[in-house]
Design a protein around this nucleic acid. Structure first.
Length: 135
DNA sequence: GCCAACGTTGGC
DNA sequence: GCCAACGTTGGC
């Protein structure tokens, strides 16, 4: 089962919003690479939530509860959305700086290609980050 | 199909 | 608020 990392500006839609709402449509993605990743998501996949722009940190995990469908917020029909549900907060938010400081994570899309808002995580990357979030 | 110009994102 | 990095657009 693949794992993902999705980004959101905390001022736009934060994990607190997701917790409050329970679940939400993850829409508004307007980048082809990110869209392709969205399309590849399956029900039950887990995605880490990363807050950009404000405090840059990983704050929790969400679960995909509906696989991709046409993005209702789009005027063109090329974009897709998925539905995700709040799963849990990180025991401790993991800062971007922290991720950057770990050699095994130097290939992380988040680090290498900062603008990609939806990206896959390898099992190894997922596990490393999880252990950071727990400690 | 190349590439310059432009717009957007996001770290700092 | 600045600017680097990247994606997209459009002229040729």
């Amino acid at each position: 089962m693949p794992n993902w990392l999705i980004k959101s500006e905390s001022s736009v839609y934060s994990i607190e919003d997701l917790k409050r709402d329970g679940s939400t449509a993850w829409d508004g993605v307007r980048n082809y690479q990110a869209r392709n990743n969205l399309s590849a998501m399956k029900i039950g996949d887990l995605a880490m939530i990363y807050h950009s722009v404000g405090p840059k940190e990983l704050v929790g995990i969400a679960k995909v509860i509906k696989s991709s469908y046409p993005d209702p917020s789009a005027t063109e029909d090329v974009w897709v959305a998925v539905d995700i549900a709040f799963q849990k907060y990180s025991a401790r938010p993991v800062k971007l700086l922290e991720l950057k400081s770990i050699p095994e994570l130097c290939d992380l899309s988040l680090v290498r290609q900062g603008r990609l808002s939806v990206c896959p995580l390898s099992k190894i990357e997922w596990d490393i980050i999880l252990s950071l979030a727990k400690s």
